[in-house]
Design a protein around this nucleic acid. Structure first.
Length: 886
DNA sequence: TTGGTCACG
DNA sequence: ACGTACGTGACCAAT
């Protein structure tokens, strides 16, 4: 702690920031009595972060006393027209003050003055008395107080982040000194405080003028010397406004405050009062923190320090591992567990907690036997990560039967996290810190000292065990036990094996493509520069927009937040207007393939000549998987150039096959099943081409023979639209018809498939009643926005309520197929490996002599994954590369 | 870190 | 009347 360091906080401003930081969680943060607490809670977090960063010896928090101040006397409309502070925030202010009192911190407000003036006055007093002064506010006005010993911190978006304004920083940002800033404001006015400055003068002009003249007084002495301009006229006309604005902008540094520096001393924390306060507001996290900080009086057993034993090769022999159940955690630094550095492990048995940084201990007796013993049930967090980490150490884990991460994802994937600490916090267990707290993030990520590390890991294994009953109970309440036990947990092992196997990629094929595409790209580049008349960065949408819409004067058809849109959608319509457009589209397409797929893929081929993706099993809102590092679920297939990439994906044996099998229209079949629509079910049961059948229906034809390719295309778009929760606008935009036509198609569709409409209505109604949408396997997606007042937000939730059960059930189905498939491969003792899943498609690496059996069993297993009211159909293809597997 | 763009189902 | 399709990940430029 610095000797004399005074922290002055702008209470209203910080509370305001705190309130809006968690505004979206407004309804989730309430006390047992129903009081909103989001601002109180965040205020405390921000306050803690200030203490940590600034280490003050003295503190005072200043508040505004009321609406009327000496400034409103000068200027009636001061802060007029400003939106009223929401009641939800106002009602929290007294509690913030109460909390500060318990914390031993003085709050102060003064009739007729704003918090700014209190801070201005105290900062002056502090400065004169030899204090280092730190001012914290969300309001940039305060930056005028900055001086050699006064630093003004302006809160940024993140809870703990602040921008430090020293006189030097002021100069960089505004070009003026803190005192000159007042004069700058005099010229600019302040729209949020509702007072005008000089007409047409903004920050730029104001800054330039003040840099030139130093103050408005001096400026107006010389104003007649300025050469004739609109600016000069405005300055002269608005002279009174400027001088008034200066008065309003100036913080009173000699206000008649009734507190002095002696009042800023920090008193001791009123522990009992604070605890009672936290309990009243339901702040479990802060309560838990208190128990640790104050030692003794530990009310929450969560916060006990755990005793652990550090395992070494010397004491390992004494380790008793005769339990039938234990918790285990293997720590690796970084997301990519295929490559991540091992840090340490922790183990919790009935005897106690054991930790060690020596992961080699896992490779030997007795830990290896323990981990490989199927009869000892292991509780973990992130089964797949654990399994693969152990696999790298030569351990084939068995008996892992509980995964806290998977369970929490199934229970509620709304506030999804892969961090054990964060998940534990969701279940009111604050005994374990988050990994970011312990290891840091980004460049600063590092392993801490042994004591910190071991305590963290000990807390982790304890939390895994401790929360297990609650999570299992909740799964049961949700009727998700079989989704968890029979789908997600077994699937995690299947995915682990797929990831470990990886897929063979031929770098030479990619390098050939790199050369070809490279030549095409340089040729296109030159041609484009020639047409444009200059060289520029083709990959910059901003620069490209400038060339197209300003230099070449093409019509800008669409805008984005930041400028002109240059997307395919726009460029496609400009094709006829300039030769350059086609070339740009062509360049874009090839450059995408080159950077993302050719170069990107080459970068991630590992030493074994394979790519090992990671499937994220606990990420998506619908239950699908996602694939990263590399993403193998978006390898090009639609364009021929892109499809070339697939030639580099080959079987592990040269004469082997890549075998691919995909479901035909799973989502529509799921829709036919869940909606019970008779016409659609009949179409699938009879084996019609569903899009042609739809075309026949919506165009009122007598037979599918009359369906033209155009009609079929339209019908296909309508079928897709239905799955997404259709709107006439969306459909019209997608297939380039009018909204009216689109509406007619949709109406006609609902007439022909009446069950679909009632399904959609029912889906929305049920989401409203239950608060979530659900798949056939009881996977949930919570939809709080279904009750939103905002039309757009609510509509989005409604479409989601329709789409999620469809997309999610399809995900359930292929997951079941994958588990059955892996089982079958093992049963039949085949060498074939399942290597990829692309949402409705499974891909296998097949030795030559297994092709025949695979052709038979894969479609069979996929088609029989689940029994629906309509048949599931899966079509297979194979070849000597992924490209040829069609 | 964010936004634009584009690859996939 | 509201403005709009559902679900993802990677790359690049600009902040």
């Amino acid at each position: 702690m610095a000797d004399k360091k005074l922290l002055l906080i702008d209470g209203n401003s910080v509370a305001f920031r705190a309130f809006y930081a968690l505004y979206r969680q407004l309804d989730k943060f309430t006390s047992p009595d129903g009081l909103h607490t989001n601002a109180i809670y965040t205020f405390k977090n921000m306050f803690d972060s200030m203490l940590k960063q600034l280490q003050p010896s003295n503190i005072l928090v200043a508040f505004d006393a009321g609406k009327v101040t000496f400034r409103t006397e000068m200027f009636q409309d001061y802060k007029g027209g400003r939106q009223k502070t929401p009641n939800e925030l106002l009602e929290q202010l007294p509690f913030i003050k109460e909390m500060l009192e318990h914390l031993g911190v003085k709050s102060y407000e003064l009739e007729n003055y704003e918090a700014d003036d209190i801070i201005g006055t105290l900062s002056k007093m502090g400065d004169e008395a030899g204090y280092e002064v730190a001012v914290v506010s969300g309001d940039r006005d305060l930056t005028q107080l900055a001086s050699k010993h006064v630093t003004v911190y302006i809160t940024k978006n993140g809870v703990g982040e602040m921008e430090a304004y020293t006189p030097e920083h002021m100069k960089e940002v505004n070009g003026v000194t803190p005192t000159e800033y007042i004069d700058m404001k005099a010229l600019m006015g302040d729209s949020s405080d509702n007072y005008p400055g000089v007409t047409k003068v903004g920050p730029k002009t104001a800054s330039n003028l003040i840099q030139q003249y130093g103050s408005i007084e001096n400026l107006y002495e010389h104003v007649e010397e300025m050469k004739k301009s609109k600016l000069k006229e405005n300055l002269i006309n608005d002279k009174d406004k400027a001088f008034l604005a200066k008065k309003l902008a100036t913080i009173d540094r000699d206000s008649p405050i009734a507190v002095g520096l002696e009042d800023t001393k920090i008193n001791s924390v009123d522990i009992a009062g604070l605890r009672e306060f936290y309990e009243r507001l339901g702040f479990k996290k802060f309560l838990a923190e208190m128990s640790v900080a104050t030692d003794g009086n530990v009310s929450s057993e969560d916060m006990q320090k755990y005793d652990y034993v550090e395992l070494t090769s010397d004491n390992i022999a004494q380790l008793k591992l005769d339990d039938s159940e234990a918790a285990f955690y293997l720590e690796m630094l970084g997301d990519n567990y295929h490559l991540a550095q091992f840090v340490a492990f922790a183990l919790k048995t009935s005897d106690g907690i054991y930790v060690s940084k020596d992961v080699a201990l896992l490779e030997e007796s007795p830990l290896k036997e323990f981990l490989q013993n199927p009869d000892i049930k292991k509780n973990v967090f992130d089964l797949k990560r654990t399994y693969i980490g152990l696999n790298r150490l030569g351990v084939q884990a068995e008996g892992i039967n509980y995964d806290m991460l998977l369970a929490s994802y199934l229970i509620n994937n709304e506030n999804n996290s892969n961090d054990l600490g964060e998940v534990a916090h969701l279940y009111d267990n604050y005994a374990v810190k988050t990994d970011v707290e312990v290891y840091g993030k980004g460049k600063k990520q590092a392993v801490p000292d042994d004591e910190t590390l071991f305590s963290h890991l000990a807390a982790k294994v304890v939390a895994i065990d401790k929360l297990k009953p609650a999570l299992l109970e909740e799964l049961k309440d949700h009727e998700q036990d079989s989704l968890y036990d029979e789908i997600e947990v077994p699937l995690a092992f299947v995915l682990a094996k797929m990831e470990i196997t990886g897929m063979k990629v031929l770098p030479t094929t990619l390098i050939q493509l790199e050369n070809e595409f490279g030549m095409q790209l340089s040729k296109l580049e030159e041609e484009i520069y020639l047409e444009a008349g200059e060289r520029f960065n083709l990959n910059s949408p901003k620069q490209l927009g400038h060339i197209l819409f300003e230099k070449l004067n093409l019509p800008p058809l669409k805008k984005t937040k930041t400028g002109y849109s240059t997307s395919v959608e726009v460029l496609d319509q400009l094709r006829s207007q300039s030769k350059i457009v086609d070339k740009i589209l062509n360049y874009r397409q090839i450059s995408k393939i080159q950077s993302t797929y050719v170069k990107g893929l080459l970068d991630v081929v590992q030493a074994d000549g394979r790519v090992h993706t990671r499937y994220l099993q606990t990420l998506t809102a619908t239950g699908r998987l996602s694939s990263v590092d590399p993403n193998l679920q978006n390898i090009p297939t639609r364009s021929e150039e892109g499809k070339q990439i697939r030639k580099a994906f080959v079987p592990s044996q040269e004469d082997g096959y890549i075998f691919s099998c995909d479901y035909s229209q799973v989502e529509l079949r799921v829709l036919a099943h869940v909606s019970g629509d008779e016409n659609m079910q009949e179409a699938f049961n009879t084996g019609y081409d569903i899009h042609a059948h739809t075309a026949m229906k919506i165009f009122h034809l007598n037979s599918t023979d009359e369906v033209t390719p155009d009609m079929r295309r339209t019908a296909k778009a309508v079928n897709f639209g239905i799955v997404y929760g259709i709107s006439d606008y969306g459909l019209s935009k997608n297939i380039g018809i009018t909204r009216k036509q689109a509406k007619e198609f949709i109406d006609s569709y609902f007439e022909q498939y009446p069950g679909i409409r009632s399904f959609m209505d029912q889906a929305i109604k049920s989401a409203r009643e239950k608060g979530y949408a659900e798949t056939i396997m009881h996977r949930r997606r919570y939809l709080p926005d279904i009750h939103a007042k905002n039309f757009n937000v609510r509509s989005f939730a409604e479409r989601t309520a329709i789409n999620s059960p469809i997309q999610g059930s399809a995900a359930d189905i292929i997951k079941i197929a994958m588990i059955n498939m892996q089982k079958k491969l093992t049963e039949l003792n085949l060498k074939t490996k399942m290597v990829l899943q692309v949402h409705d498609e499974l891909i296998f690496d097949v030795p030559k002599d297994e092709l025949e059996i695979i052709k038979k069993i894969v479609p069979e297993v996929m088609q029989n994954a689940i029994k629906l009211d309509v048949p599931l159909i899966a079509d297979a293809g194979w070849g000597h590369s992924w490209y040829d597997a069609k």
